[in-house]
Computed example of a mutant assay.
Amino acid sequence: MPSPRTPRTVVVTGASGGIGRATAVEFARRGDRVALLARGEVGLAAAADEVRAAGGTALVVPVDVADADAVEAAADRVEAELGEIDVWVNVAFTAAFAPFHELTAAEYARVTEVSYLGFVHGTMAALRRMRPRDRGVIVQTGSALGRRGIPLQSAYCGAKHAIKGFTESVLTELKAEGSGVHITRVDLPGVNTPQFSWVLNKMPKRPQPVAPIYAPELMGRAMVHAADHPRRRAWWIGTPTVYTVLGAEVWPQFMDWYLSRNGIDGQLTDVDASADDPVNLHEPADGDGGRDFGAEGRFSDQQWTWDAQIWASRYHGAVAAVAGAGLLAGASALLRRRP
């Protein structure tokens, strides 16, 4: 793989807003050539300006990741204009806030086509180019909700669970053939993104992320770090992600009980929903004539910009070394005090 300091060609899907946009800007800070894939042209244009301002080269490629042929054509264009793809980051998704019984089959299919099959299409396009070259990195945006389902988000949770399963399958296939291509997954917590302004919402109140809420810029840095260290198969980002994964594995019955009592109200604000709220399920909320939603959503006054768990995850080797040294020092002190 190229050195992390060598400018690379990077593809980011869902780059018009939220985590995708923050990730694209973070790659740009390193001088990378960044292809911005998404549907909303207003958001894409603004994201491209931010990429250039951060020091990167931007290529705007409007595309719906649910369309496999369109994703393949986008990859061709990226390589023709920016060079061979070094890193492909799948971020694009959509969702629906509603009890399962209130969703239609068409709505469920659309969430699945974008939030799951969009990752499949992106991974296929990346591997068609990376495998023959025997190099490259694919980063999948996972979620704590890909390890534990919660109420009101059955379609999204199902997509994230599916991403985990298919990514693990692809990872083992790459290992079996001794490939130099790497694939890694980054499981994220609740993030302050614009999705809570444009998600399909059938609840009486406007939705919000599960607290604590994290800044998308912090997630962008985590995504870039994962791309630099792709031999690690998965990353748990944020303290609540760790609690969620461990709780689901150790005591799922307690999680059922807790989420049945707190999972619905915890995802809703006190603000009434409106029929005029934008919805990006079938059309981009920042399409022709729309507005740029940016990377951050409505909860910037609540968001976390640092977490000790994220720091420890990034520097786990140093943490282990310090902990080991502390244990040895403690053991030595006890031995010296023995009569």
Score class of each variant (00 low, 15 high):
residue 136 G to M: 04
residue 136 G to D: 04
residue 137 V to A: 05
residue 137 V to W: 06
residue 138 I to V: 15
residue 138 I to M: 05
residue 139 V to F: 04
residue 139 V to G: 08
residue 139 V to Y: 07
residue 139 V to S: 11
residue 141 T to R: 02
residue 141 T to A: 14
residue 141 T to N: 13
residue 142 G to L: 03
residue 142 G to R: 06
residue 142 G to P: 03
residue 143 S to E: 05
residue 144 A to I: 02
residue 144 A to M: 15
residue 144 A to G: 11
residue 144 A to C: 01
residue 145 L to V: 15
residue 145 L to W: 14
residue 147 R to A: 04
residue 147 R to P: 01
residue 147 R to G: 10
residue 148 R to H: 13
residue 149 G to K: 00
residue 150 I to S: 03
residue 152 L to M: 11
residue 152 L to R: 01
residue 153 Q to I: 05
residue 154 S to N: 07
residue 154 S to I: 02
residue 154 S to F: 00
residue 155 A to T: 14
residue 155 A to M: 03
residue 156 Y to H: 09
residue 157 C to W: 05
residue 158 G to Y: 05
residue 158 G to W: 06
residue 158 G to R: 11
residue 159 A to I: 00
residue 160 K to W: 00
residue 160 K to Y: 02
residue 161 H to N: 06
residue 161 H to Y: 15
residue 162 A to L: 07
residue 163 I to A: 02
residue 164 K to G: 04
residue 164 K to C: 02
residue 165 G to N: 11
residue 167 T to P: 11
residue 167 T to L: 09
residue 167 T to K: 06
residue 167 T to W: 09
residue 168 E to N: 14
residue 168 E to P: 04
residue 169 S to H: 08
residue 169 S to N: 11
residue 169 S to W: 09
residue 169 S to L: 13
residue 170 V to I: 14
residue 170 V to K: 08
residue 170 V to N: 07
residue 171 L to N: 04
residue 172 T to N: 03
residue 173 E to P: 11
residue 173 E to K: 03
residue 173 E to D: 15
residue 174 L to M: 03
residue 174 L to I: 03
residue 174 L to K: 10
residue 174 L to G: 10
residue 175 K to T: 06
residue 176 A to S: 12
residue 176 A to L: 12
residue 176 A to Y: 07
residue 176 A to F: 11
residue 177 E to K: 04
residue 179 S to M: 08
residue 179 S to P: 04
residue 180 G to C: 01
residue 181 V to K: 10
residue 182 H to Q: 14
residue 183 I to M: 09
residue 185 R to S: 14
residue 186 V to W: 10
residue 187 D to F: 07
residue 187 D to S: 12
residue 188 L to Q: 12
residue 189 P to L: 07
residue 189 P to G: 09
residue 190 G to H: 06
residue 190 G to N: 04
residue 191 V to W: 01
residue 191 V to A: 03
residue 192 N to A: 11
residue 192 N to G: 11
residue 193 T to D: 04
residue 193 T to R: 05
residue 193 T to G: 02
residue 194 P to C: 02
residue 194 P to T: 02
residue 194 P to G: 02
residue 194 P to L: 07
residue 194 P to A: 08
residue 195 Q to C: 06
residue 195 Q to H: 05
residue 196 F to K: 00
residue 197 S to Q: 15
residue 197 S to C: 02
residue 197 S to H: 10
residue 198 W to F: 10
residue 198 W to S: 14
residue 198 W to L: 08
residue 198 W to N: 13
residue 199 V to G: 06
residue 200 L to Y: 09
residue 201 N to W: 00
residue 202 K to G: 08
residue 203 M to W: 05
residue 203 M to H: 04
residue 204 P to N: 09
residue 206 R to K: 15
residue 206 R to V: 14
residue 207 P to M: 12
residue 207 P to I: 09
residue 208 Q to P: 05
residue 208 Q to A: 07
residue 208 Q to H: 10
residue 208 Q to I: 11
residue 208 Q to E: 12
residue 208 Q to K: 15
residue 208 Q to D: 01
residue 209 P to D: 06
residue 209 P to C: 08
residue 211 A to I: 00
residue 211 A to K: 14
residue 211 A to D: 12
residue 211 A to L: 06
residue 212 P to G: 08
residue 212 P to R: 02
residue 213 I to A: 09
residue 214 Y to N: 08
residue 214 Y to K: 00
residue 215 A to T: 01
residue 217 E to N: 13
residue 218 L to P: 00
